[in-house]
Amino acid sequence: MSDISTMQPQSSMQKLSASVFKASGLLWVFLGLCVVAALLSPAFLNPANLMNVFRQVALYGIVSVGMTFVILTKGIDLSVGSILGVCAVSAALLLTGGWSPWLAVVVVLLIGAGLGAVNGIGVAVGRVPPFIMTLGMMVMARGLALTLANGQPIGLKEAAASFAWLGRGAMLGVPVPVWIFAVVAAIAIFVLRYTPFGRQIYAVGSNEEAAHLSGISVNLVNFYVYVISGFLAALTALIFVSRLTVGEPTAGTGIELEAIAITVIGGTSLFGGEGGIFGTIIGAAILAVLANIMNLVGISPFTQQIVKGAIIVGAVLYEMQRKRK
């Protein structure tokens, strides 16, 4: 018995380190990218610039964590950008309407989760393919955001001060959004790894029929991942509004594509059941550093898009080649 008990912590540590190691190929790519960045532009290592990069990683990272949950179930969520828009506008309306910041935060998070829940019901109960369901929601939610805001950005004005901490504050010299991302990512890693719900996400993504026959509530799992994705889009919206002191109805446009790219670059399979949060964190870091270098060196935003697109395809190509072996 004694040798088994001494073996246990080791084996679970081994398993943990194995999954970190799997993402470590990417880690080297990321570190290499940082070295290149530092060589190309001395400004890269400037603390202010690094903080900017971190903030960028945090903002996209939070949405991408939600996207990772959805993609692990073999789904996709195209609506996160629009949900972000609705939440940004809602936050601005509530704050300028004199609501307490705390209450406004709670309500906005519920709105995001609620819109995600609509996606979840459509996918899980209505059997609408995730692509179509969330495409519909993407269009609807953007329309809702524009309607609520009357097509105009809503400035926070005097309410901005009471709401500044979330997007612009810092703790121990680290920006608050980065702390939030760290907490979100830690919880997500823990949930996927150590809870039955996490297991069930992988099971549903690997084989829905087998999951059903194994006694898993496939509908509930499919429902919850969209709720989580919507919730995290709302959280990102709050940080956006706090930073920019304005609720724009067009906020978050295109962020769904960034999040999908980050998730895929991070090694999560679009076919479901494989991947995880470690990869997504590094994926977010890679894209953020890449955008930063290109900005520092003065590459035009148009060219940046070409590079970004090529990298997404390249990441998937690499993954496919690796699998074929």
């Binding site: 297991r199 099971a203 690997s206 084989n207 087998a210 026959l213 059941g273």
Partner: peptide
């Protein structure tokens, strides 16, 4: 393969 197993997952899973 289609109904019984999660082929991409481990034996213990």
């Amino acid at each position: 393969k289609t109904d019984g197993l999660f082929l991409s997952q481990s034996v213990s899973f």
